[in-house]
Design a protein around this nucleic acid. Structure first.
Lengths: 243, 243
DNA sequence: CAGTGGTCTAGACCACAGG
DNA sequence: CTGTGGTCTAGACCACTGC
């Protein structure tokens, strides 16, 4: 039984990958269990072995499966969500978890960048950036302060006129032709100052998870620099490392 | 000129990948520049296109290259170190950066695990774990406190007799037949308590980067659970996200 | 339209693990 | 030894981009 569709337009390797993912999440394939060999899967789905290998590659990189040369491919013991090192927006993230994201605009303005930020955004010192400061909420509880800086030259016009309580910057930039491709995050710990504590409902000196992110577009150029101050109790940053 | 070796035992796609990596790091291929198409590279190196694609896959996942469907493959503008989501030990990490890692053993003991840790290590409540508490130093400056818990049944015997100022737990477990394969880290912010502040040379209430890690062996079973308290000024946790 | 990367095939031989 | 995953080929057609 394979049930692959050659006319759906969805690549076979993705259909197979998602079928395997379902089999795992539905318990048909249990943690620690060996899945059929690549040859067997190829016959079962009626595709070539290279296509099966492409299907497995995604699940392997997520850590959902692991291989042993000369032995077989196994379902990992701890289930790992698919998106741990995937770039997602705050809005997408929250919606995917069935939560209700919203934002409160604290400030939006244009400003001149200093040397440091200019370097990160690959622009020149003195260039103009749009600076967007938002309080992010999940189910109406404040969880993070985000300060985004985007070079003015790649910004959609009239940024001030959007409804930032609902508008995703991520989606806006994509709609404006900047397909986002990759990001680098640096994570650290900081103490809440007076303003941060007030906005996040904490006390001065409480710990915050501080994340800096540079997001790159399809052409490899930096698109935004974001600083995030996260409530440590409501934001979990989990990553998967591989050998 | 291709200069690939069929007798070195090194797979062709790795030889090609490293050749491309060199061309980039030596400036023969500049950031933003388009590299030859997959077909051209295949002819140039005398291999099939699939082999070229395999070579590129590694560089793409590192962010060193990026592709645009229908356009070409380009060298990324910001160089990214190879190991951002690679699992490495504290010792390996430091040595790779040309620094001098050392440790100070604070405590080593066997203890009974509670329900929570047992779950993380996929063992039973009441099982025995070896608990290793170390102060990690770089060039003799304390940078982190690490508390590792390893199920007794997979521990090498007589753990107490090792010289923990030099011994890497990572290497010891590998030498004892537990090839480490994958890890999941959860990152958060905490405040230093009295003991932590003293060990790390900070004040009570200073912010610490708190990381929990579960490391998995080749067979997919958890091998160790580690809690790390890092000085935020001397530890940078940087990860690369991809779409 | 031509050029590029995206997907896919139907084989092949090798390296490794385990019985 | 058998079965597994690791590497590799020499094609093919499709989807996307930019001219």
């Amino acid at each position: 039984m394979n049930s692959l569709s050659h006319i759906s337009g969805i690549p076979l390797y993705i259909q197979i990958r998602e079928k395997l993912r379902q089999d795992i999440s539905h318990g048909l394939l249990l943690p620690g269990q060996k899945i059929p060999s690549e040859d067997q899967l190829a016959k079962q789905f009626g595709v070539s072995r290279m296509t099966i290998r492409q299907s497995l590659a995604g699940l392997l990189s997520e850590g959902l499966l692991h291989k042993q040369h000369g032995v077989g491919t196994y379902v990992s013991h701890v289930r790992i969500a698919a998106n741990y090192t995937r770039m997602t927006s705050f809005t997408q993230d929250a919606l995917a978890q069935g939560k209700n994201p919203s934002s409160e605009l604290i400030d939006i303005k244009k400003s001149v960048v200093g040397e440091e930020i200019a370097k990160l955004l690959a622009i020149h010192k003195g260039d103009i950036v749009v600076c967007l400061k938002r309080l992010r909420k999940i189910n109406e509880h404040p969880v993070a302060i985000q300060i985004s800086q985007v070079p003015e030259k790649i910004c959609p016009p009239e940024l001030e006129n959007y409804d930032w309580s609902r508008q995703s910057l991520f989606e806006l930039l994509e709609a404006h032709g900047h397909r986002l491709n990759r990001a680098i995050e640096t994570i650290n710990a900081r103490l809440a100052d007076k303003e941060q504590a007030k906005l996040l409902g904490l006390h001065i000196g409480d710990p915050l998870l501080y994340i800096e992110r540079i997001t790159f577009g399809d052409n490899g150029m930096p698109v935004e620099f974001v600083e995030m101050y996260n409530r440590p109790d409501s934001y979990r940053c989990t990553i998967t490392l591989t050998r």
